[in-house]
Design a protein around this nucleic acid. Structure first.
Lengths: 202, 202, 202, 202
DNA sequence: CATGAATGAGGATTCATTCAT
DNA sequence: TATGAATGAATCCTCATTCAT
């Protein structure tokens, strides 16, 4: 019989995750200590182990949840997109808005860190493949819709193209995270749209 | 009158770097201990500090040297490339050859790890910008040559395009490093070539 | 709501300082390892870092606290001293009681070690000057009181004399710490009192 | 059959001792590494072990030799001193000249460091007692001469007084080494002479 | 459930000394 | 003898996790 409500627990859990994300983003996963996190969350050191069983679990929980939310958010926005081209443009628009938000840039690094981390741990391979697969599915859906509607050329190889688009997206993301100045992101992004549409439309 | 020849020292240094790269690649930079490295190199723990002053220096030395060698190698191959298109194809060819070599995949992860590492240390910002700049310059050269020769369209925005191409390359690399199976890399790579040429030539 | 009372923490902290002083006294600061200290205090290695952030901090804390206590103790005893001469005699009496206590001799060496240590670290210069200044002030007070009361001769150079007396005290201390046998300390101490009174009184 | 002359060896040995003294004086005994010394002496690391069998031996050799030289020097100067008072004044004069020579101040710290070091090692007790004894003998000689000549009062306790004078000397030395500023050493030294003569002469 | 003190296995680095050449 | 690379024990400090209260 718990003494506190589930809502309270959930809130605390979320606060801990927020604090952890903040620390991971600023210091990196390895460099972040449990002390950093609890200090930030204004919680005692022992308490955190009532909510998560290890630092790794916190890390994985954050990544899962951010991925899930990302998809929910995308799907929500897609409702307002009448066709494949506008969906694609929406995705490109997300990239474009990145440079102006330093927080989101730092968060991006956590994702990359997770990929590295997971790539060394066989038991996390499944997680990474699943996340990758979800993205691929999303891109394939759009491409298929575009083919069906005639927006995109009929001979487009959907499987290959979605994998290519995703790589392009992550590459641009990565550079946005890492390179902080003197690079023509704005125009490069416009070029990207140009390149993609040339490629997809015929 | 040193007791050992410079060649011997250079060899040993190289052996230590190799051992370190092996460990970094398999375990990651943070997770690799000096003990791991010296065990692998079959030297004593103290010995390594005759060659490098810290674990970080080893890491940075590896990254610098791999980058330098990469460029030397590229430049060497470019001599056999008569025009911009063939240079571009050479670069794409390097990407293509990646999936079949598990070692090179693991090494790639070390580069990504370095980016992350460097992005959190202000004093390494210069190094990352320099490496990035070197790549950008390489791409710009090719694009400019292609424009001059008429291979590429005259209105191509070279600065933006090179930044875009580099992002695409790193994104594809990243996915190659991370995703190990069930993905149509071969065809995706062909699509990439198709996409790029559509974009550049028109 | 801390798990343990402040009193408990204070006690433990004091126990750690005691253990450290014991080790410093017997082995010296440099030769004492954190392992020595925690073994002596019967705590785990990590525990000590909940109380002090470094071996140096432990050292400095001990020295500061011993100095402070020394002054409190002196001041307390001075209440029972009606004039400057008796205060001076009290200070001399402290020196006299040293040879019979081997512990206090060893502790004295720790103070000397601190002087050496501090003299090599610019950031500790202030600490050493402060401690020195506190002693000088104490001696000056006594000498001024003695001059005012007519106990000491009116032309006494208080600044120079206090510096001289302090040097004499520390020299005697040093020899007491270092030389363990075959030396006529008792009579030397009596001579010292004789010398000082001849000098001060005229 | 040595390949180099004894003179060469002796020179090198001396150079190593000089370098070591320099390092000990500036960094302290513990903090000085063999590397420091050989770098300073421009000698290889292995070579030093052809001359001394350990860092400790170097330390002890320096201290012995400095002590010996000190006595030779004193004795040489004493030839020009017609009576006990002038001998005493010569010793005081040495103290006086200290503050102006930063090197000698630093060297003094090495002596103190040696005392500390030796006081923790039973096998060095003899060395410290011997050095102490040599000084005591020197002082006793002077005092006895002064008593015999009528310069000093006939009831002077020579054993106690010499021990007292030596303590005073070392105390003043110590403060000179440690306290670098704002203290009236000049006048304190004059006061010391005054005090001693009052005490010795009656 | 919360607290934060305690634990102790590591980890990077140092350094006196040895020894092959 | 000289050289300086090699050795590896020793050291300080960190930090995820546990657990008594």
């Amino acid at each position: 019989m718990p003494k506190v409500s589930d809502a309270y627990k959930e809130e605390k859990r979320a606060a801990l995750l927020d604090a952890a994300l903040y620390c991971f983003a600023n210091r990196g996963y390895e460099a972040t200590t449990i002390d950093d996190i609890v200090r930030h969350a204004k919680v005692s050191k022992g308490a955190i182990y009532n909510y998560f069983k290890s630092k790794e679990e916190i890390f994985l929980t954050i990544l899962e949840s951010r991925n899930d939310n990302f998809f929910l958010d995308i799907r929500a926005h897609f409702h307002a997109c009448p066709d494949a081209t506008s969906k694609l443009r929406h995705l490109l628009g997300r990239l474009r808005s990145l440079p102006i938000d330093p927080d989101r840039r730092r968060w991006g690094l956590v994702h990359v860190e997770f990929w590295l981390y997971a790539s060394r741990q066989p038991e996390l391979e499944a997680m990474i493949e699943r996340q990758y697969g979800t993205f691929i599915d999303l891109y394939q859906e759009i491409l298929l819709e575009g083919k069906a509607s005639g927006e995109f050329r009929p001979d487009l190889d959907v499987a290959a193209a979605s994998s290519l688009l995703l790589a392009l997206r992550d590459g641009v993301n990565l550079h946005l995270y890492l390179i902080s100045k003197n690079h023509p992101f704005e125009t490069a992004m416009a070029e990207m749209e140009d390149m993609l549409l040339r490629y997809l439309k015929n």
